[in-house]
Design a binder for these strands. Sequence first.
RNA 1: GCUCCCUUCGUCUAGUGGUUAGGACGCUGGCCUCUCACGCCGGUAACACCGGUUCGAAUCCGGUAGGGAGCGCCA
Length: 467
Amino acid sequence: MTVAVRFPPSPTGYLHIGGARTALFNWLFSKKNTGRFVLRIEDTDRERSTEESVQAILDGMRWLGLDYDEGPYFQTQRMDRYKQAINQLMASGDAYHCYCSKEELDQLRAEQRRQGLKPRYDGRCRGRDPVSGVQPVVRFKNPLSGEVIIADLIKGNIHISNTELDDLIIARSDGMPTYNLTVVVDDMDMGISHVIRGDDHVNNTPRQINILRALRAPLPQYAHVPMILGQDGKRMSKRHGAVSVIQYRELGYMPQALLNYLVRLGWSHGDREIFSMDEMIELFEISEVHKSAAVYDPDKLLWMNYEYIKSASVEQLKLHAAQHFLNAGIEIESRQNWGEILRANQERSKTLVELAQRCRFFYIAPGEYNEKAVKKHFGGRALQALTACGNQLQVIDQWRAEPIHEAVHAVAESMELKLGEVAQPIRLAVAGEPVSPPIDLTLALLGKAETLRRIHRAITFMQQHMS
RNA sequence: GCUCCCUUCGUCUAGUGGUUAGGACGCUGGCCUCUCACGCCGGUAACACCGGUUCGAAUCCGGUAGGGAGCGCCA
C-alpha cells in the first residue's frame, strides 16, 4: 500500500505549536515511508475562515521547512464532490432529511442533560415526511447497534458502542457539507492511508468510520497523538500561550530547534535530546508516540534553541539572524569579519535576537555607558589603566589577539592591578557594557583604529565625569 | 452529567517482573576565569492511591482518585 498522509488545518487562525507538531509527525511519517504529504485547507466554515489565516499557516510551514507534496487543496473548491457523496448516501438510504429546528434540538439536549444523559440527537426525523417551508439538513443514519473499533497506532484498540453515537449532520440547511463528511470524502479521494491527528478527534473517528463504510470506502489507519498542554495543565489554545510559530521566528528561534523540541514532546529515543532532521526521519516511529499529553515547557525550548545556535555554522547563523540584525540597525556583512564576530558571540546567545544585540557594538559604537558599570569600572585607577593601555595598544603592528593580550597583561603587571581591573574598563569603553567576548578577541575583532577611538572617548568621558 | 483517553522527579522522558529507578530542562553548590558565557565535577527531586497475581512488582490485573478530550447546521 502506498503511504499518504495529510495535514488539514482550518484557516481560522495561525499555525501554533500543537498544529506544528501534528504537521511534523505527518511529515516525518511521509518521509520515512516515502509517502505523499498532502496539505488540505479545511475552509468549509465560511464564517470564520480567512485568507490571512491561510497565508499565516503557509508561512509557518515554510519557515519550519515542512514541505508538502500535494496541495494545498481547498475544500470550498470541492463542493460538487461532497454533494455527490451526500446524494450517494441519500440514495443508499444511509442519510435522511431532518426538519428539526434549532430550538427543538436545544430543548432536546437540555432535557437529556437534565436527565444525566449525554446530549445527542434521537433520530426523530428518520422516516419523517417532508415539512414544507423548512430547508432540511441532511443527517447520516448511524448504525443503531454494534460497536466500532478503532485500531489506533498510538492508543491501541478503542471500542465505542454505536449506541453512544447519534445521527450527525453531514449537510447544513444551506447545502454546505460539514466536517465529518468532508474529511471522510477527502481522505478517501486523496488516497490517505494514515490519519495522524490530535487526539481531540478520537470521538469523531467512529462516526467517520461509519460514514466510510456506508460509502464502501477502505479505512485508513489512525494514529491519534496526544495534546500539548499549557503550563496550567489545560489544553493549549490561544488563551494558553499557544502563540503562532511565526512569533517564534520573531523571538529569535531557529526553526530546527522548535522542530527538535516538538518531536521530543511525546516521543523519545533513549536518552537522546538532539536530532538532526535526517535522524528524526530515520528514528521517528509513530507507534512509539506516547499516549499521554505533554506540557509545553518554554525553558526547555529556549535551551534547545541555544544548543542549535551554539552548534550552527556562521552561514546558518547569518541566514537566520539577518532579519534580527536589521532590526537592531545592522547589516551583518557590512563588516568583513562578520563571521568571526558571530562566532565570538554565538555561545553567549540563547536567541538570535540576543545574538544581534551582543554583536551590535562591533558595528556601532555604544551611545552611552552602562550606568552601574561606570560606577564599578571607571573609578579608581581605571583612568590611568586605560591611558596606559591606549599607549601600549597604539604601538602594536600586528593587530591580533596575542599581542593585544600581552599588552593588556603588561599594563596590569606594571601597575600591579588584577587583570580584571584593566580589562573591565576597556570592555566598558568599547562595548558600553561590562560584558563581551574575551577582551583580546573583542579588540582584535573591533580593529585597532576603532579600539583606540573608543578608548580615547572613554578617557575623555572619565576626565569629565569621574573627577 | 455521559462517553473515550491518560497517570515515573516541577517539566520532557528512559524503563516492558529482580536497577542504588537513568538522562535532559529548570533550580542549586563548587571548579575554571579579564566580564558574560562555555566546559567540568556535585546536589535537589518521581513510580498518584488501594487491593490483588508473583519468591519478587514502576513494570501484569482490578478498583479508587486526579487530569485531559469530546458531547454544534465548528473543524
